[in-house]
Computed example of a mutant assay.
Amino acid sequence: MTLYWGLLILSIILIVWGENFYKTVYCGNHWESRGTWVQGLVLFVPLIFFCGMRGAGVGDTQAYITGYEDIPTNFSEIVWSELGKGKLFVLYEIICKHFSPDNYTPWLFSLALISGVFFLIGIKRYSAFFGMSCFWFIASTMFIYMFNGIRQCVVVSVIFAFSNLIVEKKFWKYLIMILILATIHSSVLVMIPVYFIIQAKPWGRTMRLVLVLAVILGVGFDCFWSSFSSVLEDTTYSAYVDYMSTDASGVNIVRVAVIAVPVILALWGRRAVEELEYPLIRVSINMSVITLALYIVAIFSSGMAVGRIAVYFEIYNMISLPWLLKHVFVRNSSRFVSIICIIAYLMYFYVQMVISYGNLPYSSDFLGISL
Score class of each variant (00 low, 15 high):
Met1Ser: 11
Met1Tyr: 08
Ile12Lys: 08
Trp17His: 15
Lys23Glu: 15
Thr24Trp: 08
Val25Phe: 11
Trp31Asp: 15
Glu32Tyr: 11
Ser33Phe: 11
Ala63Met: 12
Tyr64Thr: 06
Pro72Asn: 04
Pro72Tyr: 05
Thr73Met: 12
Ser76Val: 10
Glu77Asp: 14
Gly84Arg: 01
Lys87Trp: 09
Lys87Cys: 05
Leu88Asp: 04
Trp107Asn: 07
Ser110Pro: 02
Leu113Arg: 03
Ile114Phe: 09
Phe119Lys: 13
Leu120Lys: 05
Arg125Asn: 11
Phe129Gly: 02
Met132Gly: 07
Ile138Met: 02
Met142Thr: 13
Ile144Pro: 01
Tyr145Cys: 10
Asn148Arg: 02
Gly149Arg: 02
Cys153Gln: 12
Val155Arg: 02
Ile159Trp: 09
Ile159Ala: 06
Ala161Glu: 02
Asn164Trp: 13
Leu165Gly: 04
Lys169Gln: 13
Leu179Phe: 12
Leu179Cys: 11
Ile180Arg: 03
Leu181Met: 10
Ala182Thr: 09
Ile198Phe: 01
Trp203Pro: 00
Gly204Pro: 02
Met207Phe: 06
Leu209Tyr: 12
Asp222Glu: 14
Ser226Cys: 06
Ser227Tyr: 14
Asp234Ser: 12
Asp234Lys: 09
Asp234Ala: 06
Thr235Lys: 04
Ser238Asp: 09
Val241His: 03
Val241Leu: 00
Thr246Glu: 12
Val251Gly: 06
Ile253Phe: 10
Ala257Lys: 02
Val258Glu: 03
Val261Asp: 01
Ile264Thr: 04
Gly269Met: 00
Gly269Cys: 00
Glu274Trp: 07
Leu280Tyr: 11
Ile281Gln: 06
Arg282Ile: 05
Ser284Gly: 07
Ser284Pro: 04
Ile290Met: 06
Ala298Pro: 03
Ile299Ala: 10
Phe300Val: 03
Ser301Glu: 05
Ile309His: 02
Ala310His: 02
Tyr312Pro: 01
Ser320Asn: 01
Leu325His: 00
His327Arg: 13
Val328Ser: 00
Val330Gln: 14
Val330Arg: 15
Arg331His: 13
Val337Ser: 02
Leu346Trp: 09
Phe349Glu: 03
Val351Ala: 11
Ser356Thr: 13
Asn359Glu: 12
Tyr362Lys: 04
Ser363Lys: 08
Phe366Trp: 14
